[in-house]
């Protein structure tokens, strides 16, 4: 096949047009990377940047979702304006994830945009609940609401009630709902059931909700986190098993200075030891 000048020019014109069209389409898809925090992805969704390349927007997860909480973004309706068109999401405050044991939405996904390795729904991480408004949370006001705690499917692990003294009365307790991100699946039941006009507890995408500890930090009390550093489960100082002469501690306590001879005679007269 020989190319003449006309064909080369036509081909380059077509190629340029095609490049511009494809580039335009790519630009149109860019804002979708800024998915709104309230739009949560289904269980097992891979990282958002990969998700946009893996999800074919077929809606099979939506069809197999028993509580019908998943929907496909259609542009135009409020929140969905910024969710990539055709991709599945749910809004916890409207219909939270029911955490079906069989995980039907993940099984329905033909491309693995919802990772098929997720077989235990308790391992899903759709986001993390954050008690974002302590000023309005009823439990922080000293009342016993506890609704978010009680509806939590991973109760006493993902949300616990931490008892602290109420400084206003000085004789009552406050039971503060406390999220433990390690166990939170991000199902959104807490956000859905919060009794306030606007939920005080909200599920946020993990990237927004969580901080990240400096990688050089070592928690000395965490046995799994030693990283070759010294162990602290043994005492920092090896205190002598027997009292030593010159130990100043008894002086500080107001008692007499330690005298080995006196101690020996005291032990002899009171074999049961001190304290009697």
């Amino acid at each position: 096949m020989t190319l003449n000048r006309r064909q080369v020019l036509q081909a380059s014109a077509s190629a340029t047009t095609a490049g511009l069209l494809a580039g335009g389409a790519a630009l149109l898809g860019r804002p979708a990377l800024a998915r709104p925090a309230q739009a949560l992805r289904p269980p097992g969704a891979i990282a958002e940047a990969d998700f946009l390349g893996a999800c074919v927007r077929c809606g099979l997860c939506v069809r197999d979702c028993p509580p019908q909480n998943l929907k496909l973004s259609r542009w135009g309706d409020g929140l969905a304006r910024d969710v990539a068109i055709g991709t599945p999401y749910f809004v916890a405050r409207e219909i939270p994830c029911e955490m079906c044991e069989a995980v039907p939405c993940v099984k329905a996904c033909p491309t693995g945009a919802l990772d098929h390795r997720l077989t235990d729904i308790n391992q899903a991480r759709m986001g993390v609940a954050v008690l974002i408004d302590q000023e309005n949370c009823l439990n922080f006001l000293g009342l016993r609401c506890d609704v978010c705690y009680r509806v939590c499917p991973v109760i006493d692990q993902a949300i616990t009630l931490e008892k602290v003294s109420n400084p206003r009365s000085d004789r009552h307790a406050m039971l503060l709902p406390t999220v433990h991100a390690e166990h939170c699946t991000g199902c959104g039941k807490c956000e859905k059931s919060c009794v306030l006009e606007q939920a005080a507890i909200k599920v946020l995408p993990t990237a927004i909700a969580r901080g990240e500890l400096g990688h050089h930090y070592r928690k000395g009390w965490d046995a799994t986190n030693q990283g070759g550093r010294p162990h602290f489960d043994a005492p920092v100082q090896n205190l002598p098993a027997q009292p030593v002469p010159g130990d100043l501690a008894p002086l500080r306590s107001g008692r007499e200075a330690y005298d080995p001879a006196a101690a020996a005679s005291a032990n002899a007269t009171h074999p049961a030891g001190p304290g009697q």
Binding site: A26, G29, R57, A84
Partner: peptide, 20 residues
Amino acid sequence: WLAGAVLLASAITGQLVWES
């Protein structure tokens, strides 16, 4: 050309470019 350009743009951006 457009089919090729879309595949190339998908490879570069990591998104399903044509689906927008």
